[in-house]
Amino acid sequence: MSLVADIASLRQGRRRKRRMGLAALAAALMAGIALTLAVGQSVTPPLTVMATLLGVDTGGDAFTIRVLRLPRAVISALAGACFGMGGVTFQTLLRNPLASPDIIGISSGASAAAVFCIVMLHLSGTIVSVVAVAAGLGVALLIYLLAWKGGAAGARLILVGIGISAMLQSFTAYLLTQAPSWSLQQALRWMTGSVNGAELGQALPLLLALGIFGSVLLALRRDLETLAMGDDMAAGLGVPIGLVRIGVVVAAVGLVAFATAAAGPVAFVAFLSGPVAARLLRRNGSLLMPAALTGAVLVVTADFAGQVLLPARYPVGIVTGVLGAPFLVLLIARDNRSGGSL
């Protein structure tokens, strides 16, 4: 067999494995959504769930499923996908898993801006999302400028980001104390992320964000991966570096900010999805889609666990935080030894 044929069959084999990996993730997501729809305080039989989704009036079950469970599942899946794809984009671009938007303060920026709009300016709806996106971009720019010293180096950028993130989180906490009527539920949403009280109306902006920013990222995925090999190499391979970098950052910040405006800064989802997806797919091809699916699975199952499996009911951000924190420690410990990336 010739080398060309070997190469072609090698590639086909890897493509098949990738499709299988993606299909498995999609199946896990479907299973998570189905569980969220069927199980809560009470268990609804699958047929009743189907009937309700198809528009049959099933009385009390219709309320439980359409108003309580469906928005929860949909917002969780969409926000998780946004976080996952936005996160892995940053991690790839900056060649460091610690450079995810929830660690370097982009989520906290979007979150602080959203809280400011809601608490201080009494705004709601799309305008909040727009301000959150603007704040996310502003924070990204600020970190970049502060970390700039004849070129933005990865480690400095991350440390500056962690500092900014801490400041923004205390600002959010301060804002929440200024709102006497604020309930603990809502406070938790903006501190760690939650899909309690999610409404289907929130799905449309998320869907649009995922559609627009997601397509931009998918279109630039090869350029993004080439950029991860260094600017010199990327330029040598014909990547218009400046343009691609701006496009990718704006799209990734957009995804994270829209998701944050809908579900709050759900802890560590942007950070976890990429590395988890990379291990699941054994680094086979672009990580954007796998990370989006992983993020969705993560938020849907973590929310399900927080609502049903654990003894008390916890918002999703607490559950993902508990999952993410040990991983963060592990990653820092490992990186200090070997300086590895994703």
């Binding site: 090999m229 260094g230 040598g236 014909g238 054994r282 680094r283």
Partner: peptide, 28 residues
């Protein structure tokens, strides 16, 4: 980039990439 190729001084390979994947990136 279809006329001039450049191999920089210390290129960085993404972690976990196979030889075949890296060489394929030359087709960009």
């Amino acid at each position: 980039a279809r006329r001039i190729g450049l191999l920089p001084q210390s290129p960085v390979a993404p972690e976990g990439i196979t030889v075949f994947d890296l060489v394929s990136r030359g087709r960009h």
